[in-house]
Design a protein around this nucleic acid. Structure first.
Length: 321
DNA sequence: GAAAAGGAAATGC
DNA sequence: GCATTTCCTTTTC
């Protein structure tokens, strides 16, 4: 059984001893990311593994923008230039990392990794809220597994493979190797395995995080927020819509604010929003016709209304945040 | 034709 | 009993 864990390569999350499947030797922890192993693969797969939100952070920090950047750096080196536009810590990390000066690399990388990890943890927290599942995959029922699969497929535009994992609990899933995933689901088994690995890593982080031990931004926040988000209270549609609106980098193509101050929002992709709501509520037959009927029930309750100037697919929270 | 509006009954917790 | 969900008809964009 493999002892490598993809998220450790991609995210440099410290290896997690949570898994009885893939026990990690302490010395393995320090091996991750050293000298940017497999950089091209790392770069090419980042967008597949992270939400748009996280990928956006990566672009913002200008660290792993593209393989072109790596080529640009190499060209600069060849041209004898000491540095290129290293205006960000992350970018510097890459510059120096490529030239082997690991002390500066470590500092820059640490900052970027913290940012990325923070975004990953936020993504998981959001998914937990929206799906009403626990962050720990080992606690999932087969129904939770199907929810998570549906969600991940939708979010990352993967083919639908739920049937390949039918009747499997979360712990069954966690015991499976990457090869098992590939065998059950050839088109995207490895990607699903990587996503699950990220969740497992986050759980391990949550279990061990404390102000003393955590050097990552937001790890302690996750402890509090995930706990409160999985309190078992059924989510209301208006809360669900607000959660989607709060993650514009993930769901901005489906639903977005037109005027956040006034609480006016537009559903850009009615079918997709309805599908997400259906996944959340275990209502496979959910569609926009039904979702919009539920929204209209809020008119009388004074939760949502149509804006003064009514537009198709545009609604307004009566009490904006 | 899709979205909006709202009545009425059914459903799940 | 509440918060939808489902199904429906009519109207509006």
């Amino acid at each position: 059984m493999s002892t490598t864990s993809r998220s450790h390569v991609y995210l440099d999350i410290p290896a997690f001893p949570h898994s009885h499947v893939a026990p990690y030797a302490a010395e393995e922890h320090s091996k991750t990311f050293q000298g940017f192993p497999n950089m091209p693969e790392y770069l090419s797969r980042f967008d597949m593994l992270l939400s748009e939100d996280t990928a956006w952070i990566m672009r913002k920090t200008d660290t792993f923008t593209s393989i072109d950047r790596e080529e640009e750096l190499l060209q600069c080196e060849e041209a004898g230039q000491d540095s290129v536009t290293d205006s960000t810590a992350g970018h510097r990390a890459l510059c120096v990392g490529l030239s082997g000066q690991t002390d500066v690399e470590d500092r820059g990388l640490e900052q970027v990794q913290s940012l990325v990890l923070h975004e990953v943890l936020k993504d998981i927290e959001t998914a937990c809220k929206l799906l009403n599942i626990t962050p720990d995959p080992t606690e999932w029922s087969s129904g939770h597994v199907q929810k998570w699969l549906l969600w991940t497929e939708h979010l990352y535009r993967l083919p639908q493979v739920g049937k390949a994992f039918q009747h499997l609990s979360g712990s069954d899933l966690c015991e499976m190797s990457e090869d098992d995933f590939r065998q059950r689901c050839s088109p995207c088994g490895d990607v699903l395995f990587a996503h699950l690995d990220i969740w497992k890593s986050a759980t391990w982080m949550k279990d061990r995080c404390s102000p003393q031990t955590s050097s990552f931004i937001g790890a302690d926040e996750l402890c509090a927020e995930v706990d409160s988000s999985c309190s078992g209270q059924p989510i209301h549609l208006w809360q669900f819509l607000r959660e989607l609106l709060l993650k514009p980098h993930n769901y901005g193509r489906s639903i977005r604010w037109l005027n956040k101050e006034k609480g006016i929002f537009k559903i850009e992709d009615s079918a997709h929003v309805a599908k997400l709501w259906g996944i959340r509520k275990n209502r496979p037959a959910m569609n926009y016709d039904k979702l919009s009927r539920s929204i209209r029930q809020y008119y009388k309750k004074g939760i949502i209304r149509k804006p003064d100037v009514s537009q198709r697919l545009v609604y307004q929270f009566v009490h904006p945040v």
